[in-house]
């Protein structure tokens, strides 16, 4: 059973999330596979003391790729669930703040 403290796994910091953050005031997290939008909203609001306006969730499929340069060995990279959280204007999450 996922508790509210287990929902958020890690912040996702990439060029795209950086863009979303800057332009649309959205923050991106990897979340537990069984987390719902409501759970994510509650978790973010509780942990960062902010007001969440909207949560979008996407299930990213697992992907197969090669190991190193080896053509035969294929590995499976597990899929994960990603949540894109839109905050109310004026609220920010400090862990993303350094990334500007």
């Amino acid at each position: 059973m996922t508790t509210i403290y287990d929902v958020l796994r890690r912040p996702i910091i990439t060029e795209k999330s950086n863009y979303l953050n800057g332009e649309l005031h959205q923050y991106v997290f990897e979340v537990a596979p069984d987390a719902s939008k409501t759970l994510v909203k509650d978790a973010v609001e509780l942990l960062f003391n902010v007001k969440v306006e909207r949560v979008n969730v996407i299930n990213l499929p697992a992907k197969r790729s090669r190991r190193g340069r080896n053509r035969r060995l294929r590995v499976r990279r597990s899929g994960y669930k990603k949540a894109i959280v839109t905050l109310a204007p004026g609220d920010t999450i400090p862990i993303f703040e350094g990334v500007k």
Binding site: I13, T14, N18, K100
Partner: peptide
């Protein structure tokens, strides 16, 4: 920097 194209990562990263 993982997640960024070369030259596109922000200063702090």
């Amino acid at each position: 920097v993982p997640g960024f194209r070369p030259g596109k990562a922000p200063y702090s990263m």
